[in-house]
Write a protein that binds this DNA or RNA. Structure first.
Lengths: 233, 233, 233, 233
DNA sequence: TATGAATGAGTCTTCATTCAT
DNA sequence: GATGAATGAAGACTCATTCAT
C-alpha cells in the first residue's frame, strides 16, 4: 500500500494503520471498529458526489455506513474534516501514485499520457471519485479551507506532474514547442469535462454519449495529438 | 440591441421592453420599477456564481439589488424562477444569437469557431455569466427542474450549434473525418474548464494563469486545430 | 330600510347614505364610487366565509371587488374594520329587523318561531352570511375586539329576542314551563349547526344531507316542539 | 386504561406503549422521551383550541411542552400531522370507545343517549378536546387534508353511532317514527353548540350560562325527548 | 465506545399596510 | 381619489453538532 506523501500524512484524520499482526489479535468487534473509517469514507464519497458537500446531511452518511449520527463524529470531528479525508483518500493518493510512476517511466511521453488518462479514468473517473472535482468547483468559494486543501492536495500536484511530462516531451523532440500551461489545460479539460457531464447531466437524453467514455477519451486524446486540420501548416 | 429569437422570447418572465418613448413619459418611480428585473438579475448572477444556487440567500440577492426581501418576490415568484431567468438572460440569449450568426456565415469554419470562442469568452466567460455553468454542475442533481431547464436552454442548443459546424467543416473538406461528438466536446471543454477554474480557484496562486484567458483560449484552439505532434501521422 | 339600532350606528364605517336625490345628480363615476363600499362588502363576505378572517388576504378582497389593494384601505382602515362592517351588514341588520317584527307580532309563538327560523335560513343561512358565525367561533380568541363587536351586535340581541319569545309562549300557556335559556339554545343550535355543517363539510359525502335544509329545519323544529318520545310522560 | 380498538390503533403515530416493566428499566432520559408525544399532544390541544390550527405557531407548541422548536419535529413531521394526532387522541379514540360500549348495551336507548351525552361532555366537552370541533369548522376549507381526516375519524363514526341508536329506539318502539338524520343532528347540535359557545364566547358576560353545562345538557336532552309543547298533538 | 435525543441558528416565503405618483 | 410598488415582520421547517446515557 502506497503511503500518502509525507507532507500530507497526518493532515487529516488518517485511518488507523492495520497490518497482519493487529488483525490476528483483533476480536471481531475490534475488526469492525478498525474498518469504520473506511466504511464512513465510502458512504461519504457516494453521498458527497451525489448531492454536493453542503446538501449532504451528516446523518445520512452515518446511516449509509450503518452507524448512528453521533458515531460519525467520533471519527471525523466535522463534516469538513470528513470531506478532506474523502479528497485525500480518493484523489490525493492516486495522484501521488501516478507521480511516482511517471518519475521512473522511460519511453514515449505521448504514450504515457494516453495510458495515464485511461488509468485515471479507470480509477477515478469511472467510480464516484471523479465527482469530487465537481463538488469542489462549486463549494470552493463557500468553504475556503476546503478549497485550499484541495489545491494543495490535488490541483498543484496534477499540474506539476503533467507540466513536467509535456516539458519532457518537448525536450525529447517528441512534441512541438507548445506552451506548457495551455497544453496541460488541454490535457486535463477533456477528462474533467467527461466526469462533470457524466455526474451532472448523464441522465439527460441530449447528454447521453454516443460512445463509451473510454472511446471518447481515446478519440479526444488522438484529436489533441494529431490536430483537427487535414493539412496542418 | 439584438432581440432574442421569437422561439425563446417570453419563455420566462421577460423584462418589459423599454424604449426612449416610454422613458420620456415615465415617472421616476415607474422608471425604477422597469429597471428592477434587470437589477435583480444582475445581483442574482453575481451571488449565484459566487456561492451557488442553494447557498445564495434570497434576501441577499434583494439586498444587493437595493430592495427589501419582499420586493424580490414581486418580480420572481421563487428562487428557482429567479435562477431560470438568470440562465436565460445570461446564456440562453447568447446561444440563440450565436446560432443565428452561424446560420448566415460563409467562410472558413475553423475561423468561425475561433471567433465564436473569443466572442463567447468576451460575452460570457469574462463576466460572471460563465460561472453559471459551474453552478449547474453541482446543483443539477439536487434541483432536477433547474437541470432540465438548463439542458433545454443551454446544453442542447450548444451541442446542436457546434455539432452542425463541425459537420459543415467536414463536408467542406476543411476538417478531417473526425467523430462529431468527441470534437464538440473538445471544443467546449477548454472554455468550460477555463471558466470553472477562473470562478473556483482563480484566486489561488498555483492556479493563476501565466497568460491571459484570451491568449490561453487562442493557444488551445490552435493546439486543437494543428495537433500536438510535430510529425503527424 | 331599517336603520341599525342607535347604539351601533356609526360604530363602524357606514356606507354613505344614498337616496334618489343624490343619485339623480351623480355622474356615472360618482355612482360607481358610491357603490364601492357595498361592492367591497360583498366581496369580503364571500371570501371571509370561504377562508376565515385570518386566511383571507386583503388584496384578494380588493381584486374581487375590482379595485386595487390600496383602494380598499380608503374605505376601511384595516381588515378588522372591514370584518366588522361585514358582520353588521349581514347579521346585525337582520336581527334588528326580526326584533322589530316580533315586537308587533300577535298570535302563536310556536308559529312565529317556525316562521322566523325559515326566514332566517332564507336570508342568512342560505347565502354566505351564515358562514360569518362560523368564522367568529374560531377567530374570537385571536381577535378579541372582533369578538366583542360580534357579541354586542349579534349574540346579545339574538338571545334577547328568542328568550323574550319563549317567555311570552310560557306566559300565554302555549309552552310548558321550560327553562328559558336551555330552550333558547335549543332553538339556535340546530340552525347554527346546519350552517356550520353546510359551510364546512358540505362537500363531503358522509355529510351530504338526505333532505333539503329547509325540510331539515322544519323537522328539527317539529321535533323540538313535539318531543322525541312516543308516550311523553 | 382502555386501549383503542384494534381498527384504530396505529392509524397515526401512536405513542409507545409504556408499562411498569419498561419504566423500571428505563433511564431517566428514556423515560422523558417516552412521555414526549403525550406532552406535545397536550400542549398542542390547548393551543390549537385556543387559537385555531393556522394561528398556532409550532414553536409555541414546543415551548409549552418544554422543548425546543426542533424537538417537536422529531415526533411529528409537520404541523398537520400533529393536528391529526390530536384529533385521533382526543376525539377518535373516545368515539371508538363509545361505539364499543353501545354495541353491547342492553336497555333503554333514551337512557343510553342521555348517559352518553353526559359521558362525552365529561371526557370531551369539559376539557379542551371539545374545542377541536370548533377548529375544524373553520379550517376545513383551508386544509382539505385535515378535513378529510376529521370526517373519516370523527364525523362519520359519530353519525353512524347515533343513527344506529335512534334506529334501535324506533324499532324497539321506544321512539316515535322520527326521521333518523334530523334526529341525529338534534342530538349532536346542542352539545356542539355548548362546546362552541364555551370555547369561543365563554368569557363574555351575555354568554355566561345561568346554569352548569351538565344541567344545560340534561335540560336540552329532556326537552328533546319530551317536546316543547304542553299539549302535544 | 456508541447512541440518538435535543438544540437553535438559519432560510424561504407570505401578506397587511404604507405612500409616492 | 386611485393605484400598486415597496416594505419587513412573522412563521414552518432543516440540520450540524452536542452530550447524557
Amino acid at each position: 500500500m502506497t503511503l500518502p506523501p509525507a507532507g500530507v500524512a497526518g493532515y487529516i484524520t488518517d485511518p488507523p494503520v492495520i497490518n497482519a499482526a493487529t488483525l490476528a489479535n483483533a476480536t471481531p468487534r475490534q475488526r469492525r471498529k478498525d474498518a469504520r473509517p473506511q466504511e464512513l469514507l465510502a458512504a461519504a464519497v457516494d453521498l458527497f458526489v451525489e448531492k454536493g458537500f453542503a446538501a449532504t446531511r451528516s446523518e445520512e452518511v452515518a446511516a449509509r455506513a450503518g452507524v448512528a449520527k453521533g458515531t460519525l463524529y467520533r471519527y471525523y470531528p466535522s463534516k469538513e474534516e470528513l470531506f478532506k479525508a474523502v479528497v485525500h483518500e480518493n484523489l490525493g493518493v492516486h495522484i501521488a501514485e501516478s507521480a511516482a510512476l511517471a518519475a521512473q517511466y522511460q519511453g514515449s511521453i505521448a504514450e504515457l499520457l494516453a495510458q495515464m488518462m485511461q488509468a485515471w479514468w479507470a480509477k477515478v473517473g469511472e467510480g464516484n471519485a471523479g465527482g469530487i472535482s465537481k463538488i469542489m468547483l462549486v463549494e470552493a468559494r463557500n468553504f475556503p479551507e476546503l478549497a485550499q486543501f484541495y489545491v494543495d492536495e490535488v490541483i498543484a500536484p496534477s499540474k506539476a506532474l503533467l507540466g513536467g511530462l509535456v516539458e519532457r516531451g518537448i525536450r525529447a523532440g517528441e512534441f512541438r514547442e507548445v506552451p506548457i500551461e495551455a497544453t496541460v489545460h488541454m490535457l486535463i479539460a477533456p477528462m474533467l469535462h467527461l466526469m462533470l457531464h457524466e455526474h451532472s447531466f448523464g441522465e439527460y437524453d441530449v447528454c447521453a454519449p454516443s460512445m463509451g467514455a473510454a472511446q471518447m477519451l481515446e478519440a479526444q486524446m488522438s484529436l489533441l495529438l494529431h490536430g483537427l486540420l487535414a493539412r496542418p501548416g
